[in-house]
Write a protein that binds this DNA or RNA. Structure first.
Lengths: 270, 270
DNA sequence: GCTAAAGTTTCGCTAATTCGAACAACATTC
DNA sequence: GAATGTTGTTCGAATTAGCGAAACTTTAGC
């Protein structure tokens, strides 16, 4: 049936789909899972046992959750990602300077994934206004987003060739998140042009209503894009001189020093 | 061949073994992987394609590494773990107070896994002495350890029934890490008795030569063990009054306030 | 430009996954 | 407290789909 070019292993695919169901529901039981992926109970059961034995799932009574084994893999990716240490320092520095939510993201498969986030005790949202929406929409390590709906993603796209951008669009489309999300290609390419002129990207509530963010691509020692730094906050604070001068300058300077750190790491001065 | 009681899915098991190989080698190529798990190249190839398509692996040229998809799962576990927020606060508080490496760990399958670690810029090791060994042996989120070789693990074991401890020992044994590791059962049970008297566990270089740590079990609202807090540092600093008075008191107080926070979370006062 | 090694595809065989049904263990309901 | 429904677990048979060997293509080294 599946005449897709690339050879795959369906059993593994099924196991992965089960993991996906469990993650999305946070907790799921056998019958529920079997229904969701369209498998016989007995088959799903065998998958669950296998995944549990390897620590990919954790069983609590008859409910399955994601297991700690996957934590080991996740942290491995982070700590072995080229430039992780330097990016963490840059995020810390920029967080202290701006007192806003700062993240470092990387592109993967046409989407951006958060690799480093502000250590949260430092970032306090004003309790008086919409704390909930702002706080609950914080980027979390491991979260991934469509590139067109985040400042960081736009900043990265602006560095890519037109055909590379097209390929990503073909694959991922331009799904709408809010009223302000860019949803057609011509607007996107105009925005990218603007970003190249300014040197940084602005995303005005394109992902979350009431949140504005700035992003700037960071190049690695080989000249290719290593990722992007992003600063985000509520619209009432990311405004005026902060939006147009203060944050762009801070972003620019931190990005530059991060690029320097990355270059130094790859060819140490000694 | 496999006459183990529990029904499993071998294909998935194979995929997991491949992931394990890639993680341990940090980066591996097709032939290398096929050899390591004892598969034909063509078979391994299909697994690799499947895992890559799902973001479990990332391909850089012909080298495979762990993919960002697994980061999503890993962070999900952390943030959905009952009491994660409270444990993070406790770790931060205890780190500031002690200025040493602090972790919160949980038991899983007879081993302990680090769920929260000190945010590292705060903890600086004295550059004058063995920085390398101490710094490189920092606990990292997702790392797991034998319970008998860490203070946190011992503290948890001391709360378990004798038969539960026996079951864990049967499964995991008492592998030696250093000259000081507890490797026989009678010594272990004596140590556990001592821990119950003192109210906290001390691990004197049982995991890493030159590192000493203290651990204290933390109970959840239901009375069962939720995890353990641990403070670790080089032997020259974890000594004398610090070892016998200051750290035990800090650990005790933080553990108590964490238990209070966990209780409050499960039955909010409103 | 040749050789060697590595990655990719094809294809038949057989082992292993799959499903359905039967069994056991709980909860729920009357 | 018996009966009924639901959920998890085991078993067996049919067939799918995972596996390995070899052919093919591409890349790397000399």
């Amino acid at each position: 049936m599946n005449d897709d070019a690339r050879p795959t292993v369906q059993t593994t695919q099924t196991s992965i789909e089960i993991l996906d169901v469990v993650r999305r529901r946070d907790s799921a039981r056998l019958t529920e899972i079997a229904d969701a992926v369209g498998l016989a109970k007995s088959t799903a059961y065998k998958h669950l046992v296998t995944l549990e034995q390897n620590g990919f799932l954790r069983r609590d009574g008859n409910a399955y959750r994601i297991g700690l084994g996957l934590l080991t893999y996740g942290e491995h990716v982070r700590h072995h990602w080229p430039g992780f240490e330097e990016a963490t320092e840059a995020v810390t520095e920029l967080t202290e300077r701006t007192q806003e939510e700062v993240d470092f993201v990387v592109e993967d498969g046409g989407r951006v994934t958060t690799l480093v986030e502000s250590y949260h005790p430092w970032v306090k949202y004003d309790d008086s206004v919409d704390t909930d929406s702002a706080a609950s929409y914080r980027a979390r390590v491991g979260d991934s987003y469509g590139m067109h709906s985040t400042a960081a993603g736009l900043a990265i796209l602006a560095e890519y060739s037109e055909e590379r951008v097209e390929r990503i669009l073909d694959r991922r489309g331009l799904p709408r998140r809010t009223e302000h999300t860019i949803t057609d290609r011509s607007t996107l390419f105009e925005t990218l042009e603007r970003i190249r002129e300014d040197g940084y990207a602005v995303n005005d509530q394109g992902y979350t209503e009431g949140m504005r963010s700035l992003g700037k691509a960071v190049c690695g020692p080989d000249g290719t894009v290593a990722g992007a730094l992003t600063v985000a906050g509520p619209t009432y604070r990311i405004d005026g001189a902060v939006l147009e001068e203060h944050l762009p300058r801070a972003l620019e300077e931190t990005a530059r020093s991060l690029e320097a750190a990355l270059a130094e790491r790859s060819c140490p001065p000694r």
